[in-house]
Amino acid sequence: MTTATAPVSPPRSFIPALEGMRGMAALGVLVTHVAFQTGASGTPVIGPILERFDMAVAIFFALSGFLLWRPHAAAAHGLGRAPTTTRYLLHRVARVVPAYWVVVVFVLLLLPGAAHSANLRVWLSNLGLQQVFVPLTLTDGLTQMWSLSVEMAFYVVLPLLAWLVVRLRGPAARWRVPVLCGLIAVSLTWNLWPIPTPDAIHADNWLPAYLPWFAAGTVLAELIHLVRPEVRWARVLSNKPLMWALALAALLLSATEFGGPAGLERAHPWQYAMKMVLGMIIGFGLLAPLVIRRPGTANRWLESRTAAILGRWSYGVFLWHLVVLTVVFPVFGIVPFNGNFLYVLVLTTALTLPLAAASFALVEEPCRRWAARWDRRVSAARVERETEPVESSPTR
């Protein structure tokens, strides 16, 4: 019997380093928006790199791909059961929607500019996470939510993807990685096709364009069950300095023309495809050594108390940082696109973190606990039905 280089974690086990990585990704998104709105992204050399901190979205997508696909991969390898679609969707909605709705309502009612232009179409498309499909509905304080719209689309599609490969179980499970790699190859051609869209809507902001970033995580979820000491690639994937250097190289390359033009200028289709490849490398490279670990290795910073707190608050940081950034400029008398990057970064971070903490404590965690209680009630009712004695029919 072969032994894995690292124990295969149960399908829903908690990996602390991933929570820390989620916190770092949230700060990366904050940094790239501050750099853009202060004009720092136009600074020679460092500016293009700061602008490409938006590749932190690739980390978010890869994390979602790994964590949500892991139970399905474990089930295919005979380790546990995949969640029912109802249970899965309930937890996704409870995790994402309530805290998001709080921000949307706040922005569309109270944020100057956004509230003034918020018509019924803007309200419905933002509440329904349909901004990438409805023209002219991205608004101040909520422009980053395009990625949440894409992520929600992935949540809806994931059960279908799992169903398509459900027969690849047991010995046939080794074919799941090639199938997922085939999905990556196909999705990389998305931006090469003339997809008809309404004015001001671009199909490169839809889920098929970003499937490679999610697939980076789903492939990792499969690979953790295929790791064996005699396989050289297992030692490579668990080598943190090597894999993180690869991710850094992909980030630096994305800051060139291969990642597309600077600012809001639209990229060529080949640049979109290349950006997807580079984002996939970043997500895969950063996460691989965290989930395929060498024995005795540790991730001291990512598993620290500070990183854990940032990870718990990461969703709130993502939701609220643009609201804060929009307010910081007029309140502190700072002219947008005119410098003060570090000053604005410190102010935005300092004001966003308390809002994120409140979002976690008052909205996100209570909704998560409610979903967990619902789970326990349903499970208890199912066990009661299964163990209830069946009355025998009277004989004549």
Rank of each mutant, 00 (worst) to 15 (best):
R92G: 03
A249Q: 07
F106S: 02
L319H: 10
S9L: 15
L136A: 10
V8A: 14
T218E: 07
E384P: 01
V331D: 01
L127D: 07
E230I: 00
P354I: 07
L207I: 03
T348C: 05
N239G: 00
E19K: 12
P212C: 14
A115L: 08
V157T: 07
L67E: 07
E222F: 01
P394E: 12
A209N: 12
L223Q: 10
A118L: 03
A115N: 09
N126H: 11
L124T: 11
A6Q: 13
T137Y: 10
P366M: 04
T197L: 00
L287I: 07
A17L: 15
L264I: 01
R22T: 05
P98R: 12
V186G: 07
P208K: 11
L142A: 14
A221V: 07
G39K: 13
G316A: 06
V383E: 07
E303S: 10
A6T: 12
L246I: 08
T5I: 00
D204Y: 11
R294T: 08
S304Y: 00
W69K: 01
L67K: 05
R396P: 09
E303A: 07
E391D: 01
E230F: 00
I49A: 15
A17D: 15
T38K: 06
E222G: 03
F360D: 14
H77R: 14
V335L: 13
A40F: 06
F214Y: 04
V363C: 03
A234Y: 02
R305V: 01
T85F: 08
A173I: 14
L345W: 06
E303V: 04
L251A: 09
L183D: 06
E386G: 10
I281V: 13
W270N: 04
V31H: 14
V166W: 04
L50C: 05
S238C: 01
L127I: 05
I282M: 09
D375R: 13
V103P: 02
S238I: 03
L319D: 15
E230C: 00
V324H: 09
L253T: 09
W206S: 02
G263A: 05
Q131E: 13
L161K: 05
G260N: 11
H72D: 07
T137F: 12
V291D: 03
A358N: 02
V331T: 03
E51K: 04
V327F: 09
A247V: 04
I46C: 00
V378Y: 12
R312P: 00
A358G: 04
A74G: 14
L168M: 09
L278C: 11
T189K: 06
G170T: 09
L142S: 15
P330L: 10
A357C: 04
R396I: 06
F60V: 09
F214N: 07
Q271K: 02
V45M: 10
L30G: 13
L242M: 15
G20H: 15
A185E: 04
R373Q: 14
A267K: 04
L111M: 08
A40T: 06
V93E: 13
L211P: 00
A99L: 11
A153E: 04
Y315C: 14
L351T: 02
L108W: 13
I59T: 12
V166Y: 06
A4C: 05
V34H: 14
N239Y: 00
V328E: 02
G263N: 06
S117H: 09
Y210F: 11
R377N: 02
L355Y: 10
